[in-house]
């Protein structure tokens, strides 16, 4: 009896410790984002005076108004949405086009084809040779330069392939094929609907990758009205910093402009980060499942 009590106490103590650790870590991770959110709806002078640690001061949506009034940000936003949708559909279709055939154990040459793709995971031509071939195939300044040179994402392909092999009941596939369904038909009618968990994970991965990508666009899309959102934000977030500090020494209209710039900074961070932060919790429960089924070698 006494022992059981003691056990309960030590368990409760470790419960408390674990909760404290987890809550602390959660707060540390969440706070910077929360701070930016609060700052984005506050008077920038109060932000810089340290008055907005917890709650906004002089609530205002000025920052967001100017973000959406800014033509380049608006174009960037539109471009990013376009690239994300097209890129995600393209990537996921391509992923399935490789993963499904390679999941067929009776496919002659399967090993060789796998190696052909896997090599690109470890070795590549590097920046300039890839740039030269993109240039030669006439993709510079073309939206498809964001998608095509990336090839197949091999790590994701392996996850999907393993999912096919481990989590889709072989009997179902066999039954369909005995009923005269071709392999392509099986993919569309049986495998695709049954692979929704891994599919949704892959969709989110691709969406995040395309929404956040700017380096590819920096190299291949020299035309500024094709720039995706992060690249547009580079002018505001990264480049303006130096000029902002200079500007603060100048008074008058410049100070007003400076104030606006600071507000736009906070608002644009929220505007750029929000879509993905809102989207991913919906498929979060599949992350572990998908990873698990995919990580086990089949």
């Amino acid at each position: 009896m006494k022992k059981a009590n003691k056990l309960g106490l030590s368990d409760r103590l470790s419960d408390i410790i674990l909760v404290v650790i987890c809550v602390a870590v959660t707060l540390i991770v969440a706070y910077p984002l929360y701070y930016v959110l609060v700052a984005s709806v506050s008077n920038p002078y109060d932000v810089y005076a340290g008055k907005t640690f917890l709650l906004p001061s002089e609530f205002t949506l000025e920052g967001y108004k100017s973000v959406f009034a800014d033509d380049s940000i608006f174009t960037g936003y539109f471009n990013s949405i376009k690239y994300t949708i097209i890129g995600t559909v393209y990537s996921v279709v391509l992923l399935y086009m490789v993963a499904y055939p390679l999941a067929q154990k009776d496919l002659p040459g399967r090993k060789l084809i796998s190696i052909f793709f896997i090599v690109t995971m470890y070795f590549g031509g590097g920046l300039v040779p890839t740039y030269l071939i993109v240039k030669q195939t006439g993709l510079i300044g073309n939206m498809w330069s964001l998608f095509l040179p990336g090839g197949v994402s091999v790590a994701n392909m392996i996850l999907v392939k393993n999912y096919f092999q481990n989590s889709i009941p072989g009997e179902l596939v066999e039954a369909a094929q005995i009923d005269g369904c071709t392999k392509l038909g099986t993919l569309l009618k049986i495998v695709l609907p049954l692979s929704l968990p891994i599919l949704s994970v892959m969709v989110v991965f691709s969406m995040v990758a395309y929404w956040n990508d700017w380096f590819t666009a920096l190299i291949y899309l020299p035309n500024s009205d094709m720039a995706p959102l992060p690249l547009v934000l580079r002018n505001i977030l990264i480049k303006s910093s130096a000029s902002a500090t200079q500007a603060s020494t100048i008074s008058g209209g410049y100070a007003e402009l400076n104030k606006m710039t600071e507000m736009i900074k906070f608002a644009s961070i929220i505007v750029a980060a929000a879509p993905m932060l809102i989207a991913y919790p919906f498929v979060q429960k599949y992350f572990e499942k998908g990873m698990m089924a995919g990580a086990v070698k089949g």
Partner: peptide, 24 residues
């Protein structure tokens, strides 16, 4: 909740992260 919050920053663009670093 912990998991959801901990995963969140992974979904933010490097550009935005660097912007935040500069601001902070």
């Amino acid at each position: 909740v912990t998991q959801t919050v901990l995963y969140a920053p992974h979904f933010i663009s490097t550009m935005v992260i660097c912007g935040m670093i500069k601001i902070f």
